[in-house]
């Protein structure tokens, strides 16, 4: 539970962090340059990556990065902490695996099905959780997610302890074969980039402005006639859906959906990634996911000690970069990233 408790402590500071972009008249004036350049660099890196690094590793990284970004949409921009995001990630993963294997759906439909299921679960969990605030909200998400875990353990279609194995990747639109790692990579990279751009738009939309103001001063927004719960619910659903997109892709990448993805440790890991990268920044969670996924993979020879290494990285980040790696960098540059 360490990651979870640390994260709760950071919620309040997370709220403060998220809005600490320098006092620009229009946020999008800053959004234009700093983030624009960074996103172009990101797109370039995505194109080059499969030629330099093992594609499956990059795809794994992209799935977690998107998951962390989706989580950050809720925590960093919505000011709401969920400790149950594994529910959306995991069930989307099961759904797309099942849709692809049992129903023979094409990859884009399987992924869409997973995303939709996650959105529906987000609506259910969100409408219960947003009635409470802070730690209570977090506890409700955790409780509901653990109920989901139990369902995944018992329900026949998830395969229980075995998970869903040997998931076919199929052919995109029934035509383009994506069974090779290299060809699937372009689908995953494309959806990843679409997800990131989508979140950037949400943050810088009229809806995003309302979210920002609610995070800043909720009672005042109520006094101005805003029904804040509906805005919170929508950001919860959007975050769940995008987490689902990440989970659904992961099932096709590994051709496998398992209990690991619905367990609460996964919810903890995504919090860790977001905090290391920088809560409330568009790019931070991507960096955070890269750090954690790389650490897990390159330090895997340490065995169980990898958890200790992760903890050390987290402590180092908290001490050296109080606003996360990207958050601290953005402060130095004086523009949002």
């Amino acid at each position: 539970m360490n990651a979870a408790t640390t994260a709760t402590n950071t919620v309040t500071s997370g709220r403060a962090l998220a809005g600490q972009a320098p006092g620009l008249l229009h946020e999008d004036a800053g959004e234009g340059r700093g983030q624009g350049i960074a996103l172009i660099a990101l797109a370039a890196a995505l194109v080059a990556a499969p030629f330099l690094v093992y594609p499956v590793f990059v795809m794994k990284l992209l799935c977690f990065a998107l998951f962390a970004c989706a989580f950050n949409l809720l925590l960093g921009f919505g000011g709401l902490l969920s400790i149950g995001h594994a529910l959306f990630f995991g069930f989307a993963s099961y759904t797309s695996a099942h849709a692809s294997k049992a129903w023979g759906l094409t990859p884009e439909l399987s992924i869409a099905a997973g995303t939709l299921v996650a959105a529906a679960l987000g609506l259910l969990v969100g409408s219960l959780a947003i009635r409470r605030q802070g730690i209570y909200l977090a506890m409700i998400t955790l409780a509901l997610a653990q109920m989901g875990y139990f369902v995944a353990l018992q329900a026949p279609f998830t395969g229980g302890e075995d998970g869903i194995q040997g998931v076919p990747r199929g052919a995109l639109l029934g035509v383009l074969d994506v069974s090779s790692d290299f060809s699937l990579y372009w689908l995953v990279a494309g959806l990843f980039m679409a997800g990131i751009l989508c979140m950037r738009r949400i943050v810088h939309s009229p809806f995003g402005q309302v979210l920002k103001a609610i995070r800043d001063n909720e009672p005042r927004m109520v006094s101005l006639g805003y029904k804040v719960d509906r805005y919170k619910l929508l950001v919860f659903v959007l975050s769940a859906a995008l987490s689902g997109l990440a989970g659904a892709m992961k099932a096709l990448v590994f051709q496998f959906a398992s209990l690991v993805d619905v367990y609460w440790t996964m919810s903890g890991e995504v919090i860790l990634m977001t905090l290391i990268g920088g809560v409330g920044t568009i790019l931070g969670p991507i960096v955070g996911a890269a750090v954690i996924v790389s650490a897990q993979s390159y330090l895997s020879s340490l065995g169980a000690w990898v958890v200790v290494a992760q903890g050390a990285i987290f402590v180092a980040c908290v001490v050296l970069f109080r606003k996360g790696i990207v958050g601290t960098l953005a402060d130095r540059l004086g523009r949002p990233l």
Binding site: D28, R201, H204, P206, F207, Q209, Y226, R230, Y231
Partner: peptide, 15 residues
Amino acid sequence: QRRHRGSSFDFWRTE
């Protein structure tokens, strides 16, 4: 925004 746009939830539009 509240007065002129009502309870709009347009997250797909630019600010």
